[in-house]
Design a protein around this nucleic acid. Structure first.
Lengths: 251, 251
DNA sequence: CGGACGTTTGACAAGGATCAAGTTTTGTGG
DNA sequence: CCACAAAACTTGATCCTTGTCAAACGTCCG
């Protein structure tokens, strides 16, 4: 079954991409952007809750997230699900899967989402002609790995409260980095079930932990609005180590 | 403090590398192997138990594992440790760390280990001149990520017994794939503490689980010798999904 | 022979899972 | 805009998987 989506008529050119203006992303040369645009096949919209890529898909899509949130996940035969990480605007989808030849994980849209679909056939030309972009591509893969490493440390060795705290910190930081306004409250479109599946916890225990941390005043998360009055305190509680800031590539 | 190691006098040329003869690795062209050899600075030996790369190392080594076993790990301030994955001959060390600029994880030798150290300065020339190798490099990073994804699924959603079973299956397969003899018993140089740290379990519970699974006859693991009489049964028990076999690159 | 390290076992504690309602919020059709 | 159903969130009670503590045992090696 093909993923459910609508093609977007006249996508804006990549040079005009609003994401490129954000300081989190590294600047590209004119030629690089031109190649990226050449590589982009189209823009599609996928509605919230739909699957962008199934586990085991033998020809997974290659895309980048233009707007909205999604997540990568794996499941067991009896439906236990682990969310591997969340995808925010600027993140690449299906790179690992295209490299390895088949999707070892699924991807699902959390909100309505717009994707820039890229041609997998241009991947090899990219490596041959634009070593900088090839490098970026590896960088992005390495970054995603280090992100999963961090989650594995949490799930393997942190307590439930620390895990919840880590996730809030992480998503708060990411969401703010791509939010044009400097607003200190961010939209975080996840349910408690998503949080539970991301942290290897049960729904009930996630709820109680969330509740307890909020009573302590560490943050507030209601109606998908996340606010963290004292980020430093929360980071200390969770044993969070700040990664060195560095602009990242955008495909 | 610099890592403890000895330089090996006259390393054999890369063309003669015994690892290249194994079917798990993809064949390289003469030119590729020549470049790899040019990139290789030296071979060093690190003794068992020593650290190859510290967490947070600002200029992490770039190397590949020629012989012996090692592991990647992360720790929390209070010494809780999570092993991210094990490294076997042919695996690359420090790629992620070099891409991102600093090591987000440590690497420690399980046995005496021989590393081929590569020049990080040759990484960019590699991308410019050998797109195939650049591609391989991304492939290896993507593969490692998918491996960590799999571990995260285990630690987040599998029971203790399933986790132990998964690890046995995984290491048994990997060890056999690089073992020249078709022997059905493999050397697995890990302590129960390593297993516990890799699976997010306590030492005691790991021991009891290990013991129980062996009593059921799923495998035998004594004196670092692992034997799995009925791999299929164990795989079914752990909900293991076989990855599509495909020769992987060797740097 | 002694010490360090790894393994094994039992008793007990506890963090987190499961079960079973209820309550609130969101979304949809009339 | 309201009514209703579905989805998401809460809460309390209870169970059980896994962690912690403590001690003994085995093995390797100087």
């Amino acid at each position: 079954m093909a993923p459910y989506f609508d093609r977007i008529p006249n996508p804006a050119p990549c040079v005009a991409c609003p994401l490129r203006r954000l300081p989190v992303f590294r600047a590209n040369t004119i030629e690089e952007v031109a190649f990226i645009e050449h590589m982009r096949m189209d823009q599609i919209k996928v509605t919230a809750g739909h699957t962008i890529c199934h586990e085991g898909d033998p020809s997974p899509p290659l895309a980048s997230l233009f707007s909205g949130w999604a997540f990568r996940y794996k499941t067991l035969p009896d439906d236990r699900r682990q969310i591997l990480n969340f995808l925010l605007p600027g993140d690449v989808i299906g790179f690992q899967a295209n490299m390895l030849g088949e999707a070892a994980h699924g991807v699902e849209a959390l909100t309505d989402v717009v994707l820039c679909r890229h041609s997998r056939d241009q991947l090899w030309p990219l490596y041959c002609t634009y070593p900088e972009l090839a490098f970026d591509t590896t960088w992005l893969t390495a970054k995603e790995e280090s992100l999963v490493d961090e989650v594995l440390l949490s799930v393997g060795r942190r307590t439930a409260a620390e895990r919840v705290a880590m996730l809030m910190i992480h998503l708060y930081r990411r969401a703010r980095a791509i939010q044009p306004s400097g607003d200190d409250v961010v939209h975080m479109p996840v349910t408690q079930q998503h949080i539970a599946d991301a942290l290897g916890l049960s729904l009930v225990h996630t709820n109680k932990t969330l509740r307890r941390l909020q009573k302590f005043g560490f943050f507030s998360f209601r109606q998908q609005q996340l606010q963290v009055p004292n980020l430093k305190a929360l980071e200390q509680f969770a044993h969070f180590a700040e990664p060195p800031p560095r602009p990242r590539p955008l495909l």
